[in-house]
């Protein structure tokens, strides 16, 4: 059963990343840095924060016995966000010697994802 939930969450997450990415790519005219990947990763990190806060009221990364976590945490949000495309685009900016764009891309992704996760989960934590 758990395996089915992981497959479902992962499959839907990846497809949604593709469809939303495709849509945003057409809407966003700014192409100097990969804004679409930044937005998707921030959205997914924030979503995982909201989900964990709402469901568990805790910051922990090991609810591996819980089916809901496997479906949404590992599956959906895990697959909706991506690290491989992020690194590949970052390496591309380096290869083109676009160091400012590289730094901006790195900073926006890291600070944005961490802040989104934190802001997503913090309203649900009792004392912090």
């Amino acid at each position: 059963m758990n395996i089915v939930l992981i497959i479902l969450g992962g499959g839907v997450g990846a497809v949604l990343r593709y469809l939303l990415g495709d849509y945003l790519d057409k809407k966003i005219k700014f192409k100097r840095i990969p804004v679409v990947i930044i937005l998707i990763n921030i959205l997914g990190a924030g979503g995982l924060g909201l989900f964990l806060g709402n469901y568990y009221q805790a910051i922990t990364y090991s609810f591996y016995s819980c089916s809901v976590y496997l479906c949404f945490g590992v599956g959906f949000f895990g697959a909706f966000t991506t690290f491989s495309t992020f690194s590949f685009e970052a390496a591309g900016l380096l290869r083109q010697k676009r160091y400012k764009g590289f730094m901006l891309y790195l900073l926006l992704t890291v600070v944005g994802s961490l802040a989104a996760f934190y802001l997503g989960i913090i309203p649900f934590l009792q004392s912090c």
């Binding site: 997914g44 990190a45 945490g73 949000f77 895990g78 991506t82 690290f83 992704t109």
Partner: peptide, 12 residues
């Protein structure tokens, strides 16, 4: 590869 890697878990 998109599904194999993850940014949300990294942030969490």
């Amino acid at each position: 590869l998109g599904g194999f890697t993850t940014m949300s878990t990294l942030a969490a």
